[in-house]
């Protein structure tokens, strides 16, 4: 059911151990198994697309890897430690899942960016405005954008804020669940560039990207994981 295509070499060469190891992962809902015995590894530098027909459980796979859903069998190992031994909030900031629909809190853009630093998992970090402003410039937005209320943002702008909010935490692995599906081509390209920049900053980083767009898959990935219908 799961096959890997085009297992090409990665840009930065192989480390000794994979970043993430997915072992015989299986997910069942009331109506039956969504997927069973999924096995693959994510190495530093990997750019992986998750493809396949709707209903194949691509989102559920990313959610399971993010530790948002329980699985019925198998395990996930990150940084040499199985998920069961991780403090999940800490794990999730390193293996970070981004929703298709951005879910922001009421308030301004900057309040949203700041709010994550209240969490105990980020007590050693502080909010840094400058890199955010640099990123915003790439999107053609100025300081004033930070003061905009969330309710006044377009869908694309909200997704940009959700991305900035996540990327400022410097995760190792991004799990991208069709983040550009409902965006215009221009914003989609800008977000792709943002992810590529995050990825290129550190050779330790990797991502899994669910996409239905073959051209996008070609642009953003070196190898693909195919999930068929159950």
């Amino acid at each position: 059911m799961v096959k890997e295509r085009l297992s090409s070499s990665v840009a930065f060469g192989r480390a000794i151990a994979p970043l993430l190891s997915i072992q015989r992962l299986s997910r069942r809902i009331q109506s039956g198994w969504i997927w069973q015995d999924i096995d693959f590894e994510v190495w530093a530098g990997d750019r992986i697309a998750v493809v396949g027909p709707s209903g194949g459980g691509k989102s559920l796979l990313l959610r399971a890897i993010a530790g948002l859903d329980s699985v019925q069998a198998g395990q996930i190992v990150f940084d040499g430690k199985p998920l069961t031994q991780w403090f999940l909030p800490r794990y999730r900031t390193q293996v970070l899942y981004l929703h298709q629909r951005p879910a922001l809190l009421e308030g301004t853009v900057e309040m949203n960016l700041r709010s994550v630093y209240q969490f105990a998992a980020h007590q050693d970090k502080t909010y840094d405005r400058q890199p955010i402003l640099n990123d915003l410039k790439q999107f053609g937005r100025t300081d004033a954008f930070l003061e905009r209320p969330i309710a006044a943002l377009s869908g694309g702008e909200a997704q940009i804020v959700a991305f900035l909010r996540a990327l400022q935490l410097a995760p190792d692995v991004l799990l991208l669940d069709e983040p550009t599906a409902s965006l215009d081509a221009e914003t989609a390209t800008q977000l792709e560039a943002l992810v590529e920049r995050w990825h290129a900053t550190n050779p330790h980083r990797a991502y899994l990207w669910v996409s239905h767009d073959p051209q996008q898959v070609a642009r953003i990935s070196d190898r693909q994981i195919y999930l068929g219908k159950p």
């Binding site: 800490r90 994550v116 969490f119």
Partner: peptide, 9 residues
Amino acid sequence: EALLTLGAT
């Protein structure tokens, strides 16, 4: 869930 993914307990 967005807060959980960002490291919230």
